[in-house]
Amino acid sequence: MKSPIAWSIVLLALWLGGCASVSTDPREGGLAGGIKGLSTGAYDARIREREDRLAVLRQVQGELETERDDLEYTKAQRKQKVAAERARVRRMNRDIAALNRRVDSLSASANRNDQRVRTLRTRVPQIQSQSARLQSDLDALEGSGLGDSEADLRRAQLEQQRASLQAEYDLLNQMSLDLAR
């Protein structure tokens, strides 16, 4: 028979041999896993790995916040452009209404057969209709999303239409002034 010291050595050897297969994860390894994790440096490695992942996540979060801010700025700029175009259309509508009143006045006092008066009479309502459609199209652009190249293209087309209508209005306005003389 062996002495109690020999049995202690055998048990210690078996216990230490069992520690080799023990996980270093503190949730799984228990006391033996904790001792093994501390002695092998596995805990420190896990901490460094998690700190590195946290740093990467914080960097990504910062980049996403910057991108969000850029998108918000772009959205605000586009909203201002649409608002400016709306204001121009409203001014043009007021000018067209004034021109229409002037044409009515000229029509009453001028020769009704004058071709220029007839041209003004037919063209002014057409311009008013086009201006109303332009206003409606601008209203439709109000809710467009960010980065939408189709919306940008449509806004550019509407700006072109507004400029064309403005030029035609200016010509008709000059014609009405010439008739008033």
Rank of each mutant, 00 (worst) to 15 (best):
S23G: 03
A98N: 04
E168Q: 02
G30Y: 01
Q157T: 08
D95M: 07
D70A: 09
R133C: 01
R58L: 11
N111R: 14
L64Y: 08
A151F: 00
Y73G: 03
A83W: 08
A6T: 06
R101S: 06
L120A: 12
Q160E: 13
L165F: 01
A6S: 05
L141G: 09
D69S: 14
N173C: 03
D137C: 07
A87E: 03
T24D: 13
L158Y: 04
A163T: 01
A45Y: 14
E65G: 05
S129V: 01
G30W: 01
M92P: 01
R27K: 09
Q77I: 03
V82L: 11
S3W: 00
S131W: 06
G145W: 12
R90T: 14
K81P: 00
L134D: 05
A42E: 13
R116S: 13
A151S: 14
A55L: 04
R53Y: 09
V56K: 13
L165V: 00
S109I: 14
T40W: 07
K79C: 09
L158M: 11
G30L: 03
T74H: 14
D137P: 06
R118G: 04
M92I: 02
L120D: 06
S149E: 08
L179R: 08
L106F: 09
D178A: 12
V22M: 11
K75Y: 09
D152L: 15
V124Q: 02
R162H: 05
N113L: 10
